[in-house]
Each structure stands twice: as C-alpha cells, then as structure tokens.
C-alpha cells in the first residue's frame, strides 16, 4: 500500500467506548499456529528435532526478519524494542500499531484470546446471526442471544465428541 496507493491513508488504534470498565483492552490475536501431533512410534530424536525447530524460528533474528519482511507481528518479545531503538518505526509509520494494540493492556480472562471447541462453526454462527441483524430480520440483542444459544449447543457437542 505504501508503494501503490494513490490516496492518503494512515494506521491507527481501534476505537473504544471509554465508559466500559477497564477500557481500552488489548485486541485479540488471530492467525495460524504450529501444532505438534504425536504418533505411536516417535523417537526421542524426533522430539528433539521439533524442539530445535521451534527454538530456531523464535530466535530474535528470525522473528525480526519475519516481522520486517512480511509485516506480520513478531512472535516474541525483544524484536519490537530492538527495532524501535533502531528507528525502524519512524521510517515505517504504522508498522508498530498492531503490536501496540495487542499489548495495550494487561489481558483479562476474556481478552486473552479465543480457544473454543469447534471454533470455525461458532465463528460462522456469529457471522450468520450478524448478517441477519444487518438485513433487519432481528435486533442486535436477538442476534447475540441466538449466537450464545447456538454456540453453547456446539460447545456441548464438542465436549461430547472429545470425551
């Protein structure tokens, strides 16, 4: 966008209602992650290799390269401070906003992140109810109530399937 946009633009923190207790909170992280699955005949050497790999990608140089070249968040502390000291964020204004927003406040139980069973299904449910509200077929309160009710059914099903 810096190169191609023919209009003025800038990046800012998300707005918030200041009459909500504890506002502003941190935003919730999202995106891909690595999950290690095991199998019946894993050797110790394989586990050691997995640990080695995770150590490798979370070194400061690799995390910094990932952040600078792709624009995604650095996956560890230390990178931000280093780049800030070097003046990287003055040369690239707005590149620091995601990080600042994620670390805006001490996370509460609910703002720590989403770990729900059958999360894709719940996300779709929320989106469906939201769309129905936008169409005018239900109020926002009804949409949220429906989402909660349907989401709870999904959570119970997840619990049952994974017992």
């Amino acid at each position: 966008m810096v190169r191609e946009a023919e209009f003025d633009w800038s990046t800012h923190m998300l707005p918030y209602y200041d009459d909500v207790p504890n506002a502003p909170l941190n935003s919730i992280i999202g995106g891909a992650s690595f999950w290690v699955m095991t199998a019946p005949d894993r050797t110790d050497a394989e586990y050691a290799a997995v640990a080695e790999f995770f150590n490798f990608i979370s070194t400061i140089e690799n995390a910094r390269r990932w952040h600078v070249e792709s624009g995604f968040l650095p996956i560890r502390f230390g990178v931000f401070e280093e780049l800030e000291a070097e003046g990287f964020y003055e040369e690239n204004p707005g590149a620091d906003i995601p990080y600042l927003q994620l670390t805006r406040a001490e996370p509460t139980e609910n703002s720590r992140g989403l770990r729900l069973g059958n999360m894709p299904e719940i996300r779709n449910i929320i989106q469906e109810e939201f769309e129905l509200a936008i169409q005018g077929q239900q109020t926002a309160q009804q949409a949220l109530d429906n989402a909660v009710q349907r989401g709870n059914v999904v959570l119970r099903a997840f619990e049952r399937a994974n017992r």
Binding site: N118, E121, E128, L132, I134, Q135
Partner: peptide, 22 residues
C-alpha cells in the same frame, strides 16, 4: 447466502462436514 438464505441441503452438508468438521 447472507444469513443462511441460500443454504440448500447440499450446501448444509458441505458446511457441516468440511468446515465445521461435524
């Protein structure tokens, strides 16, 4: 569809099987 309005039975099978993994 916006809010399930074009979800046919076939699409429901896809949604529940492939996306929701039920």
């Amino acid at each position: 569809g916006p809010g399930r309005s074009t979800t046919t039975m076939m699409y429901r099978v896809y949604r529940d099987g492939v996306i929701n993994l039920d």
